[in-house]
Write a protein that binds this DNA or RNA. Structure first.
Lengths: 187, 187
DNA sequence: TAGTTAACGCAAACTCTCTTGCGTTAGCTT
DNA sequence: AAGCTAACGCAAGAGAGTTTGCGTTAACTA
């Protein structure tokens, strides 16, 4: 007989308090200084509670990433391929600059997350593919999903990681232009 | 009066032993399990020595990254733009799959390294720019440095981080093709 | 080659992270 | 509304991580 879980009320409050404390601290302190002790102090949740629920900092961060991913932010549907791509590029550029974006990249790097991350990646891939399919049905000539990831998304991440700042809206549009001109001028 | 440093002989041996132990461990253990105690045991260097010289794991990793970066691996010079780009892309694809590559990305993310990292990035940028300039002098029509980074290098990193595996030689060449076709067919 | 002392090995002491038992609070069920 | 117990707070204790003093080794200098 498994114990009956109680996800509501207090438990949920504790969880969001801890999550927000982590994001707060990442905005102020360096990554190395982040510790469970600090998170406990900032959130007002006792250390023992954090250790019992998440075990380690990595476990806590995995939980945050998985929650964020499970939100399943919708893919844009503006009516035109260019509109969809630009909206999506701007959103990614924004996301990757946030502390959550850094957490996401780190989680991908250490690779200790469970299968949820991969499930999410597949789901997001499917949604993006659907976005491209809609364009094809309208008679546009969309790129492949791989091209979208390589030509637009990868540079967005690269800038954020190595240049320490996200790309601006103009540059994001430049990336979309580049993607759309891959096939040459549309017939 | 500052103490006279002794970088040679034993000190250098200890340093390389510790560095190699870290790379060894990263090939086997997960990132989270890495600890100074493990590094000491594997390298045969006493814990106290590691603490005295590097202080923390992050400090040690910064030292490794900085040493690697200061090596200044030469940029290819094959005689043709395509040859240079393909050679460079293959090398980056290889590097990014190694433990050192992961350390490098992590160091860039945590951003705690000193100015050496930025100095290196500038130096590498200058060398790559020189590579592109050579092509221009030969009458070829090279891309800009930014285009090279975005179209070729960024996807290489993206694949390694999010797909968990580096791109193969064929795909690396595809990226170079894409870069070279940016300007349309050369006149 | 001999002297000086930086760098290392060792071990004890110390600090902090993490675990665990127990009493209290508050979801969830009936 | 009352009972049951998951989830939390608290504090003591175990354990791992880090520091420090001292003797030894071995670079560097003269």
């Amino acid at each position: 007989m498994q114990p009956v879980r109680r996800p509501g009320g207090r438990t949920a409050r504790v969880r969001t308090a801890v999550h927000e404390a982590v994001l707060d601290l990442l905005r102020e302190e360096s990554w190395d200084d982040l510790s469970i002790a600090l998170v406990a102090e900032r959130s007002g949740v006792h250390q023992a509670t954090i250790y019992r629920r998440w075990g380690t900092l990595s476990g806590l961060i995995d939980d945050m990433v998985n929650e964020q991913l499970s939100q399943g932010s919708p893919v844009p549907d503006t009516g035109t391929l260019r509109g969809d791509l630009e909206a999506y590029a701007l959103k990614v550029a924004d996301d990757v600059a946030s502390p959550m974006g850094a957490l996401y990249v780190r989680a991908a790097m250490v690779g200790s997350r469970g299968s949820e991350g991969e499930v999410y990646l597949m789901n997001r891939g499917l949604r993006l593919q659907a976005m491209l399919d809609r364009a094809a049905e309208r008679g546009e000539r969309p790129p492949t999903l791989l091209e979208l990831m390589e030509v637009v998304i990868a540079p967005l991440y690269y800038h954020a990681i190595f240049f320490g700042r996200p790309v601006g809206p103009d540059h994001a549009r430049t990336l979309v232009d580049r993607l759309l001109s891959l096939r040459g001028s549309p017939g």
